[in-house]
């Protein structure tokens, strides 16, 4: 396998009294687009938070670009898009992007390019509070990609986007990956899964598949990813009982 960008080993995370991740192990190759798929509440966000180093973990270890997750040196190399848009509603799109760019020591030009990349040039001067939900999450995405990070962790970046834009965003992710960025992207939408190099299927805090989309489909004996997911879950339950 190619260079590994993210390595998760035997990770256990509890939120409240509930165990969200059970001895989770996976590795994510550098320069690839890896899709993290699973139902709501399966632990996708928790895994992403652990990788960017904002989640308190119970045990296990995570290496990102050869350093422990949350290491100081990683802060300039990771871009994180939270599920709910985390931008300042009382600033314009441009002001948001420029502020986040400035945190990495980058100038206004880079920030404006990021706004253009997410297709918000026309709305750049608008307050985020006045944008639609889809525009808001793209404003948030602009702030995540602004530093051209080596690792991009994107929590449901395409929710609420129209199909044309979704297509453009995925092309953009592919461009980033071609330039060497490692992308971990979570999604509910199975047709997006087909555009990933690799899929991590996760359910109730456990990894149930870690393969390229074609291999996932082959091992589940179906061409439909939704069905493949279901088959794998059923197969897992049979094995357990």
């Amino acid at each position: 396998m190619a260079n590994t960008a993210i390595k998760v080993n035997d990770l256990v995370v509890k939120r409240g009294r509930r165990r969200v991740l059970h001895n989770f192990t996976c590795s994510i190759p550098a320069g690839s687009v890896t899709g993290l798929l699973g139902p709501s509440g399966s632990g996708k966000t928790t895994l992403m938070r652990a990788i960017v180093g904002v989640q308190i973990v119970e045990s296990g270890e995570i290496q990102v670009l050869g350093r422990p997750a949350g290491h100081k040196d990683l802060r300039s190399q990771i871009g994180y898009l939270t599920q709910a848009p985390s931008v300042y509603a009382d600033l314009t799109v441009r002001e948001n992007a420029r502020y986040f760019a400035a945190l990495y020591g980058l100038g206004a030009k880079v920030a404006d390019a990021a706004v253009r990349d997410v297709g918000l040039s026309d709305a750049a001067g608008q307050l985020v509070a006045n944008l639609s939900g889809g525009q808001r999450s793209r404003a948030s995405l602009a702030c995540a990609i602004v530093s051209q990070p080596r690792v991009l962790v994107l929590d449901e970046p395409t929710v609420g986007q129209d199909p044309v834009l979704r297509d453009e965003l995925w092309k953009r992710f592919r461009d980033f990956a071609d330039q060497g960025t490692t992308i971990l992207v979570s999604s509910h939408v199975m047709d997006e899964a087909n555009r990933c190099d690799r899929l991590l299927l996760i359910r109730e805090g456990r990894l149930i598949a870690d393969d390229p989309p074609a291999a996932v489909k082959a091992s589940a004996g179906t061409d439909d990813l939704d069905q493949a997911f279901l088959n794998l879950i059923l197969a897992g339950q049979e094995a357990a009982s």
Binding site: V54, R75, S76, T82, S86, Y88, L103, C143
Partner: peptide, 13 residues
């Protein structure tokens, strides 16, 4: 509550 703090804490700030 809006998550901007969490995001800020993943940056070099």
């Amino acid at each position: 509550t809006t998550g901007t703090l969490e995001r800020l804490l993943t940056t070099p700030l």
